[in-house]
Simulated assay, not measured.
Amino acid sequence: MAGRINPVVKAALEWGPIAAFFLGYVKLKDQVFTLGGTDYTGFIVVTAAFIPLMVISTGLLWWLTGKLSRMQVATVVLVVVFGGLSVWLNDERFFKMKPTMIYLLFGGLLGLGLLRGQSWLKIVLEETIPMQPEGWMILTRRVTAFFFALAVANEAVWRTMSTDAWVNFKTFGLPLAIFAFFMAQGGVFKRYGYERKDGA
């Protein structure tokens, strides 16, 4: 089954769990569920449903494409760990910390590569973005700083704002920020990018 995947299917598998989490939260946020004598908020229940959904969608991506990026693997592992802690301890704070941990991990790894004089971002994205080594180093420095900024932003939002605000930030704010960031790197792509010669 490994190979190319329909872009619509790929987008559905990548974004479907996030959309389902948001819709489930909106529907269940004001409800409390009693299981085994313990009360669970709608947020915790939706988190419990999100974890297997994320694992299944990631597994399907791997089955259909034959590969997963390191970022996808790290993300699903952190979802299981921090989401699982939230459900197990009945404490939504752990799941809210998950984006912070993801961005700190990615930023830290990229920063470690930079200290070694390497762009580990290139390893992940070079098939998608053909670019000269100088461009990769510039982009990697910017992405590293951006990831650390996202980690700080997530901490600020969940610690100082309501759960509603954090869910909206996670669902809409973070993806829009990432999209805007990469759109703003057009100058780097234009200056250091090169055309594929294999017709891909």
Rank of each mutant, 00 (worst) to 15 (best):
Thr160Cys: 02
Ala2Asn: 13
Arg142Leu: 12
Phe50Ile: 01
Gly66Phe: 02
Ala74Asp: 03
Thr41His: 05
Gln118Ser: 04
Ser86Pro: 03
Thr41Met: 05
Ile178Arg: 15
Gly66Ala: 06
Lys197Ala: 10
Phe95Glu: 05
Gly135Lys: 13
Val55Asn: 03
Thr100Val: 07
Val55Phe: 09
Arg93Gly: 02
Thr160Arg: 15
Ser86Ile: 08
Phe95Met: 14
Ser57Tyr: 02
Gln185Trp: 02
Asp164Gly: 10
Thr144Tyr: 10
Asp30Asn: 09
Val9His: 03
Val8Gln: 12
Thr65Ile: 03
Glu195Leu: 11
Ala20Phe: 08
Leu114Tyr: 15
Arg159Asp: 06
Thr58Tyr: 10
Ala200Gly: 14
Val124Glu: 14
Gln132Tyr: 00
Ala153Ile: 04
Leu176Glu: 02
Gln72Arg: 08
Arg116Met: 15
Ala184Asn: 04
Leu115His: 07
Gly16Arg: 11
Thr160Asn: 11
Gly24Ser: 12
Thr163Met: 06
Phe50Leu: 02
Thr41Ala: 04
Trp88Ile: 08
Leu23Ala: 15
Phe43Ser: 12
Asp30Ala: 01
Pro17Gln: 12
Ile44Lys: 10
Ser162Thr: 09
Ser57Phe: 03
Arg4Val: 08
Phe172Asp: 00
Thr140His: 14
Leu112Glu: 07
Leu64Gln: 14
Phe22Trp: 12
Ala48Ile: 00
Lys10Pro: 00
Ile138Trp: 15
Ile102Cys: 07
Gln118Val: 07
Phe106Glu: 00
Ala145Trp: 12
Phe148Ser: 05
Pro130Thr: 05
Val167Gln: 00
Val46Ile: 09
Val152Phe: 09
Thr34Ser: 15
Leu115Asn: 13
Ser162Val: 02
Ala11His: 11
Leu13Gln: 07
Gly117Leu: 13
Ala156Ile: 08
Arg93Phe: 05
Arg116Gln: 14
Lys190Glu: 05
Glu127Phe: 07
Ile44Trp: 05
Thr140Ser: 11
Val46Ser: 05
Thr128Val: 15
Glu126Asn: 14
Asp164Met: 00
Leu78Arg: 03
Ala74Gln: 05
Gly113Tyr: 13
Thr41Gln: 04
Ser119Tyr: 10
Val26Arg: 08
Pro7Gln: 02
Lys197Tyr: 06
Pro99Glu: 07
Glu195Cys: 02
Leu28His: 06
Glu195Pro: 00
Ala74His: 00
Gly107Ser: 14
Thr41Lys: 04
Ile18Gln: 13
Leu23Met: 07
Pro130Val: 01
Leu104Val: 15
Gly36Val: 08
Met1Pro: 13
Leu89Lys: 15
Phe172Glu: 07
Tyr103Thr: 05
Phe181Glu: 14
Phe169Met: 08
Leu121Val: 03
Val79Lys: 09
Ser86His: 04
Ser57Pro: 01
Ile102Thr: 10
Met137Pro: 11
Leu28Gly: 00
Tyr25Pro: 01
Gly187Asn: 05
Gly193Ser: 04
Ala156Thr: 04
